[in-house]
């Protein structure tokens, strides 16, 4: 057995519910840190940023599943749905903290969404996540048929770019960390171009 095969066997032994559970606990752990002062003296901003970054990390992992399998043979495919739904959960938490704890005013939330390009782009990403998350189940794959389902889930590419651009734009100066996420997203998408070209040419 190759190393990749051994890793795959081990990965397959991890039940899905374990991934969901560990992943879902992280935002609550962050909330605990923010409540107990471990996120500094201005916890609203820290929590909002921590959740946004967590969402970005989950999106990059989801996007890395296919290239990782093709390049190394290691397959996370059986956990991709869990990772994707967790990414959606993290984005929703980030949005909730922004609205309820940070902005605190529905009218101002709306005016920010309309007026501030970085918030508009972030919101576009969230709205596109809704149909993707809603159809991340076996029933939807059967009902839609694999082709249509796959096309819908290609929205993930747009979602990841909008998330990374939103992150870059929120900074006051050109900071290295958001640019790394954007570069990772673009590299993982560039890797898919030959496959996508063949698929759409056919």
């Amino acid at each position: 057995m190759t190393t990749a095969q051994r890793v795959n066997v081990a990965l397959r032994k991890v039940p899905s519910w374990v991934v969901y559970l560990i992943g879902a606990v992280i935002p609550f752990y962050y909330l605990y840190l923010a409540l107990t002062g471990a996120m500094g003296v201005e916890p609203v901003n820290s929590l909002e940023r921590a959740l946004g970054e967590l969402a970005m990390q989950a999106l990059v992992v989801v996007l890395a599943v296919t290239p990782l399998r093709k390049l190394t043979g290691v397959s996370l495919i059986m956990h991709r749905r869990a990772l994707g739904l967790l990414a959606f959960f993290y984005v929703a938490c980030h949005l909730l903290v922004w609205g309820v704890l940070d902005v605190q005013d529905p009218a101002r939330m709306w005016s920010d969404i309309v007026k501030r390009p970085y918030i508009t782009i972030g919101m576009v990403g969230f709205v596109l996540l809704l149909p993707v998350a809603a159809t991340s189940n076996n029933f939807s794959v059967r009902r839609m048929g694999p082709m249509r389902w796959r096309r819908l889930h290609m929205l993930t590419y747009v979602i990841c770019v909008s998330g990374a651009v939103h992150y870059v734009m929120v900074q006051k100066v050109w900071e290295i960390e958001p640019l790394i996420y954007l570069a990772l997203v673009l590299a993982l998408l560039a890797y898919r171009i030959p496959t996508l070209r063949r698929e759409f040419a056919a």
Partner: peptide, 16 residues
């Protein structure tokens, strides 16, 4: 251009 200046949060008030 990227945020409103109408309100502010006083540091030290905690999460809520």
């Amino acid at each position: 251009p990227r945020w409103s200046q109408a309100t502010e949060r006083r540091v030290g008030g905690g999460l809520f």
